[in-house]
């Protein structure tokens, strides 16, 4: 069996869809953050696959940047999680519906 670019597109689409589904459906703020990480990883998969097919390293460089952004996003998101938990004693995203700090 030959692995074509379509296989990668389908896998990355499914990974992104699973992550998006998790963001929409989960109640726990931590799991929502993890689902966002899944979505970023799906994007990376596409970048790597196209980088190989186009014989261009730029895709790999950009996936390094995406991983950097994911790290920063996780740090801020987890700090927000702790902040939310200290103020509301909950991680339920449905209860965190007030903009006031």
């Amino acid at each position: 069996m030959t692995v074509t670019i379509n296989h990668f597109l389908v896998v990355s689409f499914l990974l992104f869809a699973i992550g998006f589904f998790g963001v929409l459906v989960r109640r726990n703020f931590l799991t929502v953050l993890m689902s966002v990480e899944l979505m970023l990883n799906a994007v990376n998969l596409n970048l790597i696959a196209f980088s190989r097919r186009l014989s261009d390293l730029t895709g790999q460089v950009f996936s390094v940047f995406v991983i950097t952004i994911a790290a920063g996003e996780a740090a801020i998101g987890l700090a927000l999680t702790i902040s939310l938990f200290r103020q509301r004693k909950t991680l339920n995203v449905e209860e965190a519906d007030v903009l006031k700090g």
């Binding site: 459906v25 109640r27 726990n28 999680t81 991680l91 995203v93």
Partner: peptide
């Protein structure tokens, strides 16, 4: 980082929380 935060907030919140919204 994730596991640290889970351990910081885990104990009291997870029990009894409905998984899906």
């Amino acid at each position: 980082l994730f596991l640290f935060v889970i351990m910081l907030v885990h104990q009291r919140t997870v029990r009894g929380l409905v998984t899906f919204q």
